[in-house]
Design a protein around this nucleic acid. Structure first.
Length: 575
DNA sequence: GCCGTTTTCGGCCCGACTGTTTTCAGTCG
């Protein structure tokens, strides 16, 4: 059983949970949390690093002790220290921390005083009104716990960015229209454009005495008001999404936006730099002088960062994943922007499972200002999508030739999304594939192959000289289907050797590659194609989610295939 | 438990809100 980075991270997080309940040194707890995040975000496999004899204590936040613990987990699959902790405390006790209102202190009290060790016992005790009698608890807290347990039952977890947008945009418009409001923006992971959003952080600036708080809690979609203060309120919307609204004066906008955009880890690192310079950063500004009484900046994010000697850092990069060091040394990437995209390299039409005709898709692409569009239908293996065989593909190629005559200034690229079969061969013969401008080669079956075989299968597909772009390389569907087991480093190395490209599928349900994969591709020097996999005219607009993900993955224009003019693109597509 | 241009010990980011309090601990982001 191979040990994944996520396994190591989960064990360290669990250790931190137990240590918190046991009231251990808070900085020791933080060390485990930091290590968990470092490992989770590591692009390489930590088991691989151990096997290669690398010195793990060179990783940030990993010292001698944690390096040894990582080695132990990689070797045994478990951690003796965690096993000891679960002998002292019930294994399920940490589940209670997931319940809102319950932190380590209260969980410890619940366990010691009432013997509560899991969620079921918590619910029973709350219903029996035993919790309200405990010191530090009360009737309200007990009721909130009960409500929380019911909510957890119905909905939990993070929602996809696209759904968060559907909630956020009308809410922001509603707040912007409240009298006295000067700005209403979404911060948090929404602004960092993460693929999923846990809750919505909204920042509002307004003139004094604006009724914005009243209006927020009166919003038609609000199901429950969880907190209500002068500058901060928290509500839960009917669909379960939690919204935090924060109101600050206009002159604090930059500092507040910076603060609430996060990430938390990024903010901690930035504030640490401020401390080293004798300054203090909070959501109201950046402060210096005797006891930090003098306000130096705060109107804009540029001001805040400038005050500690850093250039602007794009929100998508603020994950404490090296962006601060890059900013300090003037090596921040110039991130790709929407205007850099010159065409879409993966779309479907009515010929298979798309909803628009060839002509409609081409017209829509021209409308977007593109210079080219690749038509890439499914191949015959995808019978449910009416995948093309040789004869129907040739019909479509003829249709493309006829349409192309109408558009001398636009290039319709002839392509196919050809299935990678179980043995790594492609679903159409080379004699057909060689007539095309490009191929998107995708896995649509056999998701459960062991990682080594899946990796070998995809590399074998790349051995075919007609293979150009690997479509949705991990096959994952966000919140629905796990990625198939595949060694992305091997795939990247093989792609580089063979001159292949990897797709960043921009469909908001896929976003496949991940941000980490994008950075890895950049390190390997493998170019990425940002493609929508559109099945309709509207689907072409999903390119923006691909751009978000690419920006989170530090990609600039040169790292992306479809920023090239058509002549250069065709040159790169030749193998 | 980590870390070091304050370097091997003594620090480790910051503030709002709530509920239970009688001045503040706990939770959350």
């Amino acid at each position: 059983m191979p040990i994944h980075n996520a396994d190591v991270a989960a064990i360290f997080d669990r250790v931190a949970d137990f240590l918190e309940i046991a009231a251990a040194n808070p900085f020791r707890i933080r060390a485990y949390r930091n290590a968990a995040r470092t490992i989770a975000d590591l692009p390489q496999s930590v088991a691989g690093l151990v096997a290669a004899g690398e010195d793990l204590s060179r990783l940030p936040g990993i010292g001698h002790d944690l390096a040894e613990k990582i080695a132990e987990i990689v070797a045994t699959g478990t951690l003796g220290m965690l096993d000891e902790l679960t002998r002292e405390l019930p294994a399920e006790l940490t589940d209670l921390l997931q319940v809102a209102q319950l932190g380590p202190k209260r969980v410890a009290i619940l366990y010691r005083q009432l013997g509560i060790s899991n969620l079921a016992e918590l619910a029973a005790a709350a219903r029996a009104q035993q919790i309200r009698r405990l010191k530090g608890f009360g009737e309200k807290t007990e009721n909130k716990i009960l409500t929380e347990l019911q909510w957890r039952h119905r909905e939990q977890g993070r929602i996809k960015l696209i759904r968060a947008e559907q909630v956020a945009e009308p809410l922001l418009a509603y707040l912007a229209a409240v009298p006295g409001v000067t700005r209403a923006v979404a911060a948090g992971s929404y602004r960092r454009r993460r693929e999923t959003v846990g809750d919505l952080d909204i920042l509002v600036t307004c003139r004094p005495a604006s009724p914005v708080m009243e209006r927020m809690v009166a919003y038609e979609d609000v199901a429950a008001v969880l907190g209500r203060g002068d500058t901060k309120s928290t509500v839960r919307l009917r669909d379960g999404l939690q919204v935090d609204l924060r109101v600050v004066p206009d002159e604090c906008y930059g500092a507040a936006l910076y603060h609430f955009t996060g990430s938390k880890e990024h903010n901690v690192a930035v504030r640490k730099i401020a401390v080293q310079k004798g300054l203090k950063i909070n959501e109201y500004g950046i402060f210096g002088g005797e006891d930090h009484g003098r306000r130096l900046a705060g109107a804009s994010e540029e001001e805040v960062l400038g005050a500690i000697g850093l250039p602007f850092i794009e929100p998508e990069l603020r994950e404490n994943q090296g962006e601060i060091e890059a900013a300090r040394s003037g090596r921040l990437p110039e991130l790709i922007v929407a205007d850099d995209i010159r065409g879409d390299l993966h779309v479907h039409t009515k010929a298979t499972d798309g909803r628009a005709s060839l002509g409609e898709m081409v017209a829509a692409a021209r409308e977007l200002g593109y210079e080219y569009l690749a038509i890439t239908e499914h191949s015959r293996a995808i019978a449910v999508a009416h995948g093309l065989d040789r004869r129907r593909l040739e019909q479509q190629l003829a249709e493309i030739d006829r349409l192309a005559e109408q558009y001398p200034d636009f290039r319709i690229l002839k392509g196919i999304e050809v299935d990678i079969l179980a043995d790594g061969s492609l679903d159409l013969p080379d004699t057909v594939l060689k007539k095309l401008d490009l191929t998107v080669c995708s896995v649509h079956s056999g998701f459960n192959l062991p990682a080594a075989r899946q990796t070998e299968r995809i590399i074998r597909a790349m051995d075919n000289p007609h293979c150009r772009i690997i479509g949705h390389p991990t096959g994952r569907l966000i919140n629905e289907r796990a990625p198939y087991g595949v060694d992305m480093e091997q795939i990247m190395a093989a792609a580089r050797e063979r001159g292949c490209f990897l797709e960043l599928n921009a469909n908001p349900d896929r976003l496949d590659l991940t941000d980490h994969h994008c950075r890895l591709a950049k390190e390997f020097g493998v170019k990425v194609a940002i493609s929508t996999d559109a099945h309709s005219v509207a689907g072409l607009a999903n390119i923006k989610y691909g751009l978000d993900q690419a920006r989170r993955g530090w990609l600039n224009r040169d790292d992306v295939l479809n920023t090239r003019p058509v002549s250069e693109l065709l040159h790169l597509l030749r193998r």
